[in-house]
């Protein structure tokens, strides 16, 4: 099922490039960008990691240089979803924003309020954020890399922000997004069916279909909504 999804996402991506002539445009943009941006302003591993090839995973194929431009040829964000190459984004942020390192966003990114967030020296942007939104983004990233919340669990599994928040949209995630990996709903209902009290199934609420995030908050502690009215129910997260 998951493979089928990945295939589909890839197909659409590649097709759209072919149909829209994206490849040419990308190249054009690439060369244009190259002219504008000085080498020093390009995001590159080599700025900090002299032996940058050592930090690549063992299984990683040989790459020509340490510039993000090169990385992005394979690791370009896929919008959303669980494409394995998206893990790059999650891992990079995890390692660079943890308590020990807490790198400045602008070592790699370029952004001005309202303008697109870009990777230095790499064409394409990751949504246009206001000052407020960018602050929120930064705060959530900094917290997520070390948090005990589900955002951290997702990141460490290689699920980047954009996997859920498509196209740079900050806001509540729809159930369909959650269910594309964790679904279908029926399996969750089955998984949490209580033996003793069949009608106390948290995934089959008498409130009808409610948002996953009512209980499964990502950027804060999870809570069991049922308990707000039914404090005696024996419900807990596994």
């Amino acid at each position: 099922m998951k493979n089928a999804w990945q295939c589909l996402v890839w197909c659409i991506f590649v097709l759209s490039l072919v149909v829209l002539g994206g490849e040419n445009q990308l190249q054009a943009a690439n060369s244009k960008q190259r002219q504008q941006i000085k080498p020093a302003k390009r995001a590159s591993c080599i700025k900090c990691h002299d032996q940058w090839s050592d930090i690549l995973p063992n299984t990683h194929q040989l790459v020509q240089n340490a510039r993000f431009e090169a990385c992005m040829q394979c690791h370009a964000p896929q919008g959303w979803g669980m494409a394995p190459l998206n893990k790059f984004d999650a891992h990079l942020h995890l390692t660079h924003l943890s308590n020990k390192t807490s790198e400045n966003c602008f070592n790699c990114h370029q952004w001005k309020p309202g303008a697109g967030l870009t990777l230095l020296g790499v064409p394409g942007k990751y949504g246009a954020f206001t000052q407020e939104e960018f602050n929120a983004l930064r705060q959530i990233y900094l917290s997520a890399v070390d948090s005990r919340f589900l955002d951290n669990r997702h990141l460490t599994q290689g699920v980047s922000c954009s996997a859920c928040h498509a196209n740079g949209v900050i806001g509540q995630v729809r159930n369909s997004t959650c269910l594309s990996c964790h679904g279908p709903m029926e399996t969750l209902v089955e998984k949490t069916a209580p033996q003793q009290h069949p009608d106390r199934n948290p995934h089959k609420s008498h409130l009808g279909e409610i948002d996953c995030t009512v209980c499964h908050m990502q950027h804060g502690p999870q809570k069991i909504y049922c308990l707000e009215c039914h404090p005696k129910f024996d419900l807990h997260f596994k």
Binding site: H206, L207, G208, I210, V214, Y225
Partner: peptide, 10 residues
């Protein structure tokens, strides 16, 4: 609230 319906739904 994070769910619709208030008292009405219950």
């Amino acid at each position: 609230r994070p769910t619709y319906g208030g008292n009405s739904i219950i």
